[in-house]
Simulated scan of single mutants.
Amino acid sequence: MPDIVTITLNPALDVSTSADAVAPTDKVRCGAVRHDPGGGGINVARVVQTLGGRALAVFPAGGPTGAMIEDLLDGMDIPARKIPIGGVTRESFTIDERKSGLQYRFVMPGPELSPKERRACLDEIARAAEGARMAVLSGSLPPGVSPDFVQETADLATRVGARFVLDTSGEALRHVRSGAYLIKPSLRELREWLGRELRSEAEQVDGAYGLIARGVSEVMLVSLGAEGALLVTSQGYERLPAIDVPVCSAVGAGDSMVAAVCFGLVQGLDLRSAVRLGMAAGAATLMTPGTGLCRREDVERLYAQQTASATIAPLKAIPRS
């Protein structure tokens, strides 16, 4: 049984290509096309595999795109459990404009899940998570799935003894009330969740710590984009600077971060070292074009650079408001 089970409620067949320029009305002549199995949890499973671990990917899928995702995962030797659905799994389309270096990303909503299909997802998650050390729910919810599904999954993970990790947004994020080990919102998502601007670092720490104090999660890892990340626990907090790398594509960077944190924890790293491994994986994914994810050698090199010359200072005290 793999240590890490990933859950992707709204998977996608990721299609990526490039063009000299993207312009309205005119035909846009594209280069070679790449297909990848996508969606948050599936990306997490791919990165865990890249780093030398094993993750089981659980996801609903249907139609030819769903079958293609299954085939791609099989070709990558990633264990997967597909829940058949009547709808057709979505595609996501990414195009890199060579002239400007800009990237355009088109994300479809996904098929609606019926009540019976939602129940089948929960049943399969329960079976898959039995004996796992971590259960990771990552990505958006498809149409027809109540945001309460997130709390149901957290409760399920708690019952089987798996640490629950969450990386989602919007109503799904705001509906989790308890049971998470780690939640990774972006700063924008944290602002929307709390309904506050959180302009200063102290306000951001206070907002994240407030959720910990309410029992929502034990750890909050807030991604700050080009400003790095903020790790907050009940013991204190740490601001981690971004790793300076050449950026080719941002697709999957957050998923890579989550994957490497989970991989590091199951490999025996302490939380702060695991977060540094996550930062390295996120940065390494920025270096790959289109929908490609990180390379192991890049992750290991960037992680070594973070840890070789610096002593990890004690966590800073939580500012009391």
Rank of each mutant, 00 (worst) to 15 (best):
R301Y: 00
G62F: 02
A45K: 00
L286Y: 05
I4A: 04
L141Y: 02
L187P: 02
A23S: 13
D167N: 04
Q103F: 06
G225C: 11
M68R: 15
E130W: 10
R320P: 05
I95N: 05
T8C: 01
M287Q: 15
E189S: 04
G131L: 01
L156F: 07
A208C: 11
I243L: 14
V219R: 05
S100Y: 11
R90S: 11
P111F: 01
G62R: 12
I42H: 10
D74A: 15
S273Y: 03
T233H: 08
A12Y: 04
G144H: 00
G63W: 10
T285R: 03
V245L: 04
C248Y: 14
E227P: 03
V47P: 02
P289C: 06
M1L: 07
A154P: 01
Y209V: 06
R46H: 08
D123Y: 06
A129E: 04
R98I: 15
R272G: 00
E189P: 02
G179P: 00
A259W: 01
A281V: 02
V258I: 12
E297P: 08
D26S: 12
I85S: 00
R239M: 13
G282V: 10
V266G: 09
L72N: 00
Q267K: 15
V145L: 14
R177I: 05
R295T: 13
M1W: 05
S200P: 07
P143K: 14
L51A: 09
P241D: 12
Y209N: 13
Y104D: 09
L211K: 13
A304K: 07
G38I: 05
V88H: 10
G228I: 09
Y237W: 14
C294L: 12
A180I: 10
P24T: 14
L230I: 13
A55M: 09
R54M: 08
D36H: 10
G75R: 05
P246I: 01
R320I: 09
S186E: 10
L198G: 06
K116N: 08
A57Y: 01
E189H: 10
I78Q: 01
A135E: 06
G52H: 11
T288G: 11
T89M: 10
S16Q: 04
T65H: 14
R133I: 05
P109E: 02
T158A: 13
D3P: 05
F106W: 08
G228A: 12
E227W: 12
L286P: 02
R191A: 11
L113Q: 12
S217W: 04
V47S: 07
L137N: 03
P37T: 13
R34C: 04
D71L: 15
L231E: 05
V28Y: 07
V275S: 02
K27D: 10
K316A: 14
A260Y: 01
D26Q: 13
E201I: 14
A162V: 11
L221Q: 04
M279Y: 03
S200Q: 11
S178F: 05
R98H: 11
G75F: 02
P314F: 00
L166G: 07
F93M: 08
K82H: 03
I4M: 05
A128H: 03
S16W: 02
L137F: 09
G110D: 02
T311C: 08
G38F: 03
R127Y: 03
V275K: 01
E203T: 08
H175W: 11
